[in-house]
Amino acid sequence: MIKKESIVIEIQVNVDGTQIFKTNSIDLWPIIVRVMNSLDALPFVISVFVGKGKPTNLEEYLRPFLEELVALQSKVLKFKGLTYSIEISSFVCDAPARAILKVITAHTEYFVY
C-alpha cells in the first residue's frame, strides 16, 4: 500500500481598512485570504466589518474567521484521496490594521490614563 502525504495549504491573511465614501465616516474592514502555494489562486474575502471607524470590538471582528480556521485545522480534510491541512503563512497589514490586531496604540495615536 502506498502512503499518501498530507498537502499543506498555506494561507496569507490580509486585514486592512478603508473609508467607503469621502463624505461620511463609514469604513470597510475586510479580512482577505490568499492561498500561497497555488499559482492561480486569487485572493478572496472571508469576512467584512462595516461601520463608523475601525472595529472597536476585536473579538467580535475576528471571531467568525478564527472559529472557521480552528474548525478547518481540527478536522481531517480529504478530497480525491488526498489529505489536506491548513496553516497560516503570514499576516499582511498596514500600520493601523497591525496596531488593531496587536491591541496596541498606533504610531499616530496617544494613550491617556
Results as ranks from 00 to 15, higher is better:
residue 55 P to N: 12
residue 14 N to M: 01
residue 102 K to N: 14
residue 96 P to Y: 03
residue 54 K to N: 02
residue 26 I to V: 01
residue 112 V to F: 09
residue 7 I to P: 01
residue 51 G to E: 13
residue 17 G to A: 07
residue 98 R to K: 09
residue 64 P to L: 07
residue 107 H to N: 10
residue 77 L to C: 09
residue 43 P to L: 02
residue 70 V to D: 15
residue 65 F to C: 11
residue 106 A to M: 07
residue 50 V to F: 13
residue 73 Q to A: 04
residue 38 S to C: 15
residue 37 N to Y: 06
residue 94 D to N: 08
residue 50 V to H: 11
residue 25 S to E: 05
residue 19 Q to Y: 11
residue 45 V to R: 02
residue 76 V to N: 15
residue 107 H to F: 04
residue 68 E to Y: 09
residue 49 F to E: 09
residue 46 I to F: 12
residue 103 V to R: 10
residue 22 K to S: 10
residue 3 K to H: 11
residue 75 K to F: 04
residue 52 K to C: 02
residue 36 M to C: 13
residue 54 K to G: 02
residue 55 P to A: 07
residue 40 D to G: 09
residue 61 Y to C: 02
residue 84 Y to D: 04
residue 69 L to F: 14
residue 22 K to I: 00
residue 26 I to T: 07
residue 77 L to E: 11
residue 78 K to L: 11
residue 7 I to G: 02
residue 3 K to E: 15
residue 35 V to K: 00
residue 1 M to S: 11
residue 77 L to A: 05
residue 55 P to W: 10
residue 7 I to K: 15
residue 36 M to S: 12
residue 110 Y to R: 11
residue 53 G to T: 02
residue 72 L to F: 12
residue 84 Y to G: 01
residue 97 A to L: 05
residue 13 V to R: 06
residue 58 L to D: 13
residue 22 K to F: 04
residue 32 I to Q: 00
residue 71 A to M: 07
residue 54 K to P: 01
residue 68 E to D: 13
residue 93 C to V: 04
residue 106 A to K: 08
residue 16 D to Q: 01
residue 68 E to L: 08
residue 78 K to W: 06
residue 101 L to I: 04
residue 74 S to N: 13
residue 56 T to L: 14
residue 48 V to D: 10
residue 29 W to Y: 01
residue 77 L to S: 06
residue 53 G to P: 04
residue 56 T to P: 05
residue 29 W to F: 01
residue 43 P to V: 01
residue 21 F to P: 01
residue 21 F to A: 06
residue 68 E to I: 02
residue 105 T to H: 15
residue 92 V to N: 05
residue 75 K to P: 02
